[in-house]
């Protein structure tokens, strides 16, 4: 960037570029043809049935940044992450990304309860974009990180929910993504595992990988993130360091 003829330090590279993003949802779903037929004839106020989950979002995330997404329940945090992973498509505006993503919109989304831990590691690894070789190489590391070596050939349905999350998180974290999208997954697992996860996240951060993390725990966000974005009813209310944003949000809510 040039300012008064002086060259300033170049901006770090943008890896997520969101422009004027808007996302609408239907408030009422019709699941049968009959219902929508009835609606067709009654023409019941169509405009009132749409709901704006995200409105005019503009956000640039740079390589190596760890961005925390905060806000009340239903403010659109998960929806925003879903637009970035490409699971959903925006109704207006654009999302562009660079590099490989691993989206933990929900840990263990690709897990199947009837498969064993081992099978799930393979399936989930492939779902998150790993090749067969990569999975085979990392397999032992994944198992070790999860601490589930003993139960690796047990069907996942017999795991406790914490064990399940551990394994799922281990797979996701070993996919070596450039961009890591985490949605409220750090809140599962016991203290020991949470510490291990945060440590691993720091490691990845030092490798200049990018994070977007949703969490309701101020502590966790402050620990990991150097930038916080506050969403409220689908609008970005504030964007800055945790020390800038949290006081604003707390003042607003009280």
């Amino acid at each position: 960037m040039k300012l008064f003829g002086k060259t300033m330090t170049p901006d770090p590279e943008v890896v997520v570029d969101i422009q004027n993003l808007q996302k609408l949802f239907k408030l009422h779903h019709n699941y049968s043809l009959k219902d929508s037929f009835v609606n067709l004839f009654t023409r019941s106020n169509i405009h009132k049935t749409m709901f704006t989950a995200l409105n005019d979002i503009n956000l640039q995330v740079h390589r190596g940044e760890a961005v925390g997404l905060i806000g009340r329940n239903g403010s659109g945090k998960s929806t925003l992450l879903k637009q970035i992973t490409g699971v959903q498509r925006p109704d207006a505006g654009s999302v562009r990304v660079k590099g490989k993503m691993a989206g933990l919109i929900e840990v263990g989304a690709g897990f199947h309860p009837d498969l064993t831990g081992r099978e799930n590691i393979y399936l989930n690894g492939a779902i998150l974009g790993m090749s067969k070789n990569e999975i085979e190489q990392k397999f032992d590391e994944i198992v070790e990180f999860s601490g589930q070596a003993k139960f690796i050939d047990t069907e996942v349905r017999f795991y406790s929910s914490g064990m399940y999350m551990r394994l799922a998180f281990s797979v996701a974290i070993h996919t070596e993504p450039d961009l890591f999208l985490v949605d409220e997954v750090l809140s599962v697992g016991d203290n020991e595992f949470r510490k291990k996860c945060i440590q691993k996240l720091f490691e990845l951060k030092n490798e200049n990988r990018t994070f977007m993390i949703v969490s309701h725990s101020e502590n966790q966000i402050r620990q990991i993130c150097d930038r916080v974005v506050w969403l409220h009813h689908g609008i970005i209310m504030a964007d800055g360091t945790p020390d800038e944003v949290y006081p604003k949000m707390n003042a607003f809510q009280s």
Binding site: I84, R89, V95, V97, K98, G99, G129
Partner: peptide, 11 residues
Amino acid sequence: VPRDKFYTPGS
């Protein structure tokens, strides 16, 4: 997946 070029996710 391109590492140095923008792409639209989900396309």
